Computed example of a mutant assay.
Amino acid sequence: MAGSPSTAVFVPPHARDDQVRMRHAHAAAARMFKVTPTGPDVWGWQGRTLGRRAGQWWLRLVCAPEDKLNRRLWEGTTTAHHALPPAVPRPRLHDVLEWSAHGHAYRAELSEYVPLPALQSGGPVLTTDPDLPSVWWADLRLALEATSSVLTDRQAVRQQWVDKNLTRFLGIPAFQIESWTTGHGDLHWANLTGAPLVILDWEGWGLIPVGFDVGLLHAYSLTRPVTAARVRQEFAHVLDTPAGRAGELVALAQLLQVAARGGHPDLAPHLARHAEHLTGTPVPLP
């Protein structure tokens, strides 16, 4: 299931020199790990990451300018590996390498290869309704509940962001988040496989408002009303509570911020309509 050209954000870097640099760094990591990549290139958000299959392994390279390194994201995969319980279905991390060169920091992560495809490719916005059995939804609920039991001081969402941005993107007064939980932090369809469920890409995990993860998943489903309705049905016990509603509003505000920067143009009007439905207030114009 490929994203349309207007929604694809998992793409190579715009500059060809950056593509070559990333491929050379990935090849160097493969040599250091003594593995042989054979799978196609899989690029992450705007070419920030590059992954390839290497036999029984998945070799993922992350790159950032040395002076703009986000340590929380940089170390997220490793901290998730050590902190999350076995009940959370995810690829297991095998080894990590880090180095710097010419102003760029690199991190190579060797994880077990997951043979199941993600439910969405090209970007996080759902483009086709997946046919998922009830057991898949039950497994997702159990995985998020198990994640919520993890104690951490990692912040995936900050109250300061809510204070600064909620009025700007939703047109409502900022509010204090009363209920926090541990979550994935980037729960969308490109980070989920079909049955049996595996949850991918844990680099952004940490404390989130209750309702944020499933609010994100629902928001990324808004272009597919049948699936969006299923998300709300399966997670009504979260989204239909005051705490869950608050977390969902924060998720919508974050995605509206992405839309204001030109991201997810096909999703943006759906986000605005749903936010107004929840708050009764029109979303401010960009």
Rank of each mutant, 00 (worst) to 15 (best):
F169A: 03
L255C: 10
L256I: 11
S100L: 01
A30K: 00
I172R: 06
K34D: 15
Q233E: 14
A83H: 15
G122F: 13
R158Q: 12
D139F: 06
G185N: 03
W58V: 02
T78Q: 09
A156L: 02
P130T: 10
M32D: 13
A260H: 09
H14P: 14
A146L: 13
A275C: 06
H81C: 09
E109I: 03
L144G: 05
V231M: 03
V226D: 11
E66C: 14
T167M: 06
A143V: 01
H274W: 15
G215S: 08
Q176P: 01
Q56V: 02
R16V: 14
P209A: 07
L93A: 02
A29H: 02
L267Q: 07
A190I: 09
R48E: 14
V157H: 02
G194S: 11
A29K: 06
P133K: 07
E234M: 12
F10Y: 15
F10K: 12
L222P: 03
R72C: 07
S100R: 15
A253D: 04
D240H: 12
G171S: 05
C63H: 11
R72V: 12
R52S: 00
V35F: 04
F10G: 03
G280E: 04
R261C: 14
V283S: 00
P115A: 05
E276C: 01
A272F: 00
G44A: 13
T279N: 10
T227R: 07
G263Q: 08
L61E: 07
Q56N: 04
H102E: 12
D129I: 13
P13Y: 06
P5G: 08
D201S: 05
E276N: 00
S121W: 10
S149E: 11
T77I: 05
Q155H: 15
L151F: 00
D163V: 11
L285C: 10
P133F: 10
L170G: 09
H277S: 14
A28G: 14
L192D: 09
L93Y: 01
N70R: 10
P115G: 01
D163W: 12
F33L: 09
P242F: 12
K68H: 11
D41M: 08
A143S: 06
T193K: 04
R23E: 12
G183Y: 04
L170H: 07
L61S: 05
P242R: 14
T7S: 13
P173F: 08
P13A: 12
G76W: 07
Y113S: 01
N165E: 14
R16T: 13
K164H: 12
T78K: 07
H264I: 11
V231K: 06
A108T: 02
L187V: 04
R261T: 15
W74V: 14
V226N: 10
Y220A: 05
G204W: 04
M32E: 15
G122E: 02
T147G: 08
W202K: 08
Y220D: 03
T182R: 04
W137I: 07
V62L: 14
A251T: 06
T281Q: 14
R90T: 00
G194F: 09
P225M: 10
H81S: 14
V35E: 00
P196S: 07
S4V: 14
A253T: 03
A83G: 00
